[in-house]
């Protein structure tokens, strides 16, 4: 029996990735680890967008909301990849500054302000 891979599979995978990302953000103490988790969240959204662009957009598009709705999701995904790269570059630069000031990239060390 062949298993047909439909939209729902992509969405479930996206949801799992999203949950893993959130768990990573909450539990990781290393700033780079948090950054990786954030990238996973972004990729969960990417996966959703692409899956929807392929499967759902055509099925859902109603008169008045038509057009090249299918392409929107893919375009969005490309923009996200771009912005994720920008964000990663920036975050790494900031992490280097943190290392210079605190001698560690554990987020717990860089926690002098509170209250």
């Amino acid at each position: 029996m062949t298993l047909e891979i439909g939209l729902i599979h992509y969405l479930v995978l996206g949801a799992i990735l999203f949950a893993l990302g959130i768990i990573g953000v909450v539990t990781r103490r290393n700033a780079v680890g948090v950054l990786i988790s954030i990238e996973i969240i972004l990729n969960a959204a990417n996966l959703n967008l692409i899956a929807f662009a392929k499967h759902a957009a055509k099925g859902l598009a109603l008169p008045g909301l038509q057009g090249s709705a299918g392409l929107d999701g893919q375009v969005f995904a490309i923009f996200i990849i771009l912005l994720a790269a920008c964000e990663a570059a920036l975050a790494l630069a900031i992490i280097i500054t943190i290392f210079n000031r605190f001698g560690s990239i554990e987020v717990d060390y860089a926690n002098t302000m509170s209250g």
């Binding site: 990302g21 959204a45 967008l49 909301l65 999701g73």
Partner: peptide, 20 residues
């Protein structure tokens, strides 16, 4: 980055559900 990622996930669902 986390909150914009969460928002993005919401946007992706919204896109799929609305098709636009």
């Amino acid at each position: 980055a986390v909150s914009s990622g969460v928002m993005l996930y919401g946007l992706s669902l919204l896109y799929g559900l609305a098709g636009s």
